[in-house]
């Protein structure tokens, strides 16, 4: 497997007291979250608690009404709440959206190439495409097939590979388990872990499948009704009462 020689300089994301919502509905209440270079942080919570909204705030798709989202790159601070999604992608942030959101009537390869839409990503396009095809062999076999005709698991691989085409340094993954069988969820999580090691990625993953999520997590945040109710490392999470109640069924 070709070693990925991506950027390895310092990165950190700092979310402070973010409030956000849709019209009259407040989805996030004073959410704060930190990620350091190379960490994998999971955002745990069931549906409708604000996980996706928080990731969308990082990508500039949802604008916080107050609070800050700051990305520190090699000592330079970027205020993501003032940047467009295009600019945020150019800084090296990519998101694998919930439900995969592929372009169903484009081929696998066309989907991948669109992942490198930003001018900054185009210089490395051959290298990244070779890397994706090496890592996800099924995508190479099916590169002329329409994305919409692939199975759910293959689509999830493609969605992740497409996000990698922009040479991201921070990868946001929104609910990779949605719509997949338990085996495929497990494969997907293993794949993210493998990529993280190969790629030197920093990962923020929103997930409701606790058991799968903690396999790759360094730390976790639990979000309930738009508020962070618990922060801790994996060991602390497993001991947490909320986790026991919500996920382990032992409460």
């Amino acid at each position: 497997m070709p070693a990925y020689s991506g950027p390895t300089l310092a990165l950190s994301l700092s979310i402070r007291e973010v409030e956000a919502g849709y019209d009259a509905v407040r989805a996030l209440h004073g959410v704060s979250l930190d990620i350091a270079q190379g960490e994998t942080v999971v955002l745990l919570g069931t549906n409708g608690n604000g996980k996706s909204t928080l990731l969308k705030c990082v990508m500039g798709i949802v604008r916080p009404t107050s609070g800050s989202v700051a990305l520190d790159l090699d000592g330079v601070a970027h205020d993501l709440t003032r940047l467009s999604t295009e600019e945020i992608v150019s800084l090296g942030v990519a998101m694998v959206p919930e439900g995969r959101r592929l372009f169903p009537r484009l081929t696998v390869e066309e989907n991948l190439l669109l992942g490198a839409f930003r001018p900054q990503a185009r210089a490395d396009i051959r290298k990244n495409l070779a890397f994706c095809y090496e890592t996800f062999k099924v995508l190479k076999e099916r590169r002329r097939q329409l994305a919409g005709l692939m199975s759910g698991g293959q689509q999830q691989m493609l969605a992740i590979a497409r996000a990698l085409m922009s040479s991201p340094r921070l990868l946001l993954v929104d609910e990779p388990s949605v719509g997949l069988s338990p085996l495929l969820v497990s494969n997907t999580i293993s794949m993210i872990k493998k990529l993280k090691d190969l790629y030197g990625l920093t990962v923020l993953m929103a997930e409701q499948n606790f058991h799968q999520a903690i396999r790759i997590a360094d730390r976790g945040y639990i979000i309930v009704h738009g508020e962070i109710v618990f922060v801790g490392d994996v060991a602390a999470l497993e001991q947490n009462e909320l986790v026991k109640n919500y996920y382990l069924g032992t409460g």
Binding site: M59, I61, S90, F103, L114
Partner: peptide, 10 residues
């Protein structure tokens, strides 16, 4: 085909 996804591509 997918406006939001295209936005995520930058």
């Amino acid at each position: 085909q997918d406006r939001l996804a295209l936005q995520l591509m930058g």
